[in-house]
Amino acid sequence: MRIKEMVGNLIETAISKHASDIFFLPDDNQLLVNLRTLKGFTNQANFTENEGKEIINFLKYAAQMDIAEHRRPQVGALTYQVNDVNFYLRLSSVGDFTDKESLVIRIIYQVNTGQYFLPDQIDQLRSLTHKRGLVITSGPTGSGKTTTMYKLAKYVGQNQMVMTIEDPVEIQESSFLQTQVNLEAEISYTRLLEAALRHRPDILIIGEIRNATTARLAVDAALSGHLVLATVHAKSTLQTISRLESLQVDRNELVNCLTAVTYQRLLPTQAGYSCLMDIAAGSVLRRNILQSQRGNFVAWSQNLTELKKRGEISAQICEQFQAG
């Protein structure tokens, strides 16, 4: 019971701080518990080595992982409820070179927890989705990309077939057909994408475009009339175009299939966290696709300055997020 209460306190503290991850890391003869929030990487608690082993074993058991295996990488998942709200936890464990085990928990927040500084931005994206094609969202881990994709799909997907391909499924949504990569069962992103095109969804959510093969299938789906919502790793809005080119998608295809590209971050406010987006669509998007040299953002800096003037973010936060 003591370990259960300790774990519960750690998870609830992390959620109250809107942490994206909880790290359980071995250090000499103790276990460090660190949180990743928008303020950075901070220490939350320290435990003895034996307490640390008990905590990790408790979490692995709850997530249906093998508690007897301490060296090989494992993944697991569980749902944790706080104040009648479900939070989805994704666990990953691995041993270091001394065979001491570490564990990381990623916290997935529900779709309805997403708040936006500029609500007209999500309305703009909602309008753009009616054009079908490919809508790409970029941003670092924990920036709310999946939440945004799910919001858009729920907005426009009523009475339509919505199918997701993820690794892993991050948000459970009963109205969607959700599929998940399972490499042990030889169910890869590629195989699921190929199956999805045969399954004839109206809206296809791709958790992440990871390589040229995934990019090719996403483009083909968009060109064939589907609305495709996907994420990709890129450092800014317009560099998302360059990232797709590096995955062997040519400019003519981008002109024909790309409806919008966005970049987003979660910024701290007095009341919690809200999402700020930068969106390229229409003539701005087309012009940048056809350029060989691209900048980074459309209106990111201007929007940060406006939020600072309105008192919604501090001058420090405005400066901190200028580069995205």
Rank of each mutant, 00 (worst) to 15 (best):
G311N: 07
N252F: 14
C257H: 05
D250A: 06
H233K: 04
S236E: 02
T237C: 13
V219Y: 11
Y273S: 12
G272S: 10
V284T: 13
L267Y: 15
R210P: 02
I241W: 12
T259G: 15
L285M: 09
F321S: 04
W300I: 09
A222D: 05
H233S: 04
A215V: 03
A260P: 01
N288Y: 06
E253Y: 08
F321G: 00
G225T: 02
L254S: 04
R310V: 01
T305S: 14
K309C: 03
V298S: 12
L227C: 10
F297E: 02
I313C: 09
T269A: 02
L223E: 07
K308H: 14
R251N: 08
L267M: 09
T213K: 13
V261W: 06
S301A: 10
A230Q: 02
S314V: 02
A212I: 03
E319A: 13
E319G: 11
Q316N: 07
T213F: 05
L304S: 01
T240A: 13
S224N: 12
V228P: 09
S242M: 08
V232D: 00
L217E: 10
E245N: 02
N303S: 08
R243V: 00
Q264I: 09
R251S: 11
G282E: 05
A215R: 00
T269C: 10
L254I: 01
L238D: 09
R251W: 01
T231D: 01
D278I: 04
G225E: 06
L285S: 13
E319S: 15
S246D: 15
S236F: 04
S236W: 07
N252R: 09
N303R: 15
T237L: 03
V255K: 13
Q239P: 03
T231V: 08
F297C: 01
S242L: 11
